[in-house]
């Protein structure tokens, strides 16, 4: 039956460790995957847009109020208090009320859960595709990278649209409530910082949301992944 190691001399003990996928190619593949599932991706993106715009709205509101307080003094403080802000005149600062803080946290949480859900679905749908990639020699890390890249692109798009949108809405409502002084007194650097922070938070949420589904996908045995479709 078995001739024990007749060809042991020819044994391929040393195997070249050379499986690669360039970063540019990864980006290309992820981008195409998003394009093909445009509608689904947009739903994920829109949930990010909503959550991040709310965050940006709240943050920029604080900037507007802070600006008013610095320039308007006591009059502004009473106006702001009347409008529902927590004003600390001694520090010259306006802070989020506890209720507001909770709503922001909740909205971000809901958004993350939504993203996990959407990404799990998108991963499940592609089990066989992932299995094939692994049969062709893809490493776990490559699959992980593809999904993270997709999430990063979605995150960047959704979060930046959301942050800009939220910021604009906040500026408009500020102008309506407090007059044009709201714009004149605005600390622009602070506002840009807030918008940037909201964008960053959105990107992080998107990555956080995809981490678990992507890990599941990357760790699948190729045979199970392919069988899942049948």
């Amino acid at each position: 039956m078995t001739k024990q190691a007749a060809g042991a001399g020819k044994s391929k003990g040393r195997i070249d460790r050379l499986i690669t996928l360039s970063f540019a190619k990864s980006v290309e593949i992820s981008f195409k995957s998003l394009q093909v599932r445009f509608f689904r991706s947009m739903i994920t993106v829109s949930s990010l847009v909503l959550a991040v715009s709310f965050l940006a709205f709240v943050l920029v509101n604080l900037d507007v109020a802070g600006g008013l307080l610095v320039h308007g003094g006591r009059d502004a403080a009473t106006a702001l208090s009347a409008a529902g802000y927590d004003v600390d005149l001694a520090d010259g600062a306006v802070s989020m009320s506890a209720k507001e803080r909770w709503i922001v946290i909740l909205s971000l949480l809901v958004c993350t859960v939504g993203i996990v859900n959407a990404q799990l679905m998108s991963v499940t749908e592609r089990f066989s595709e992932i299995g094939v990639m692994k049969c062709l020699g893809a490493l776990d890390s490559m699959i992980l990278r593809l999904f993270l890249l997709e999430a990063a692109m979605q995150g960047l798009l959704g979060a930046s649209i959301g942050a800009v949108l939220g910021g604009l809405i906040s500026l408009l409502t500020g102008a309506v409530r407090f007059g044009l002084a709201a714009w004149a007194d605005l600390p622009w650097a602070g506002m840009l910082g807030s918008v940037g922070m909201a964008t960053l938070a959105g990107c992080l949420l998107s990555l956080l949301g995809v981490l678990y589904p992507a890990l599941v996908a990357a760790r699948m045995e190729p045979i199970n992944a392919i069988r899942a479709e049948h």
């Binding site: 195997i15 070249d16 460790r17 499986i19 692994k134 020699g137 490493l139």
Partner: peptide
């Protein structure tokens, strides 16, 4: 895992 990927590849 790395060698297995190589084999499949």
């Amino acid at each position: 895992a790395y060698e297995l990927a190589w084999l499949r590849n």
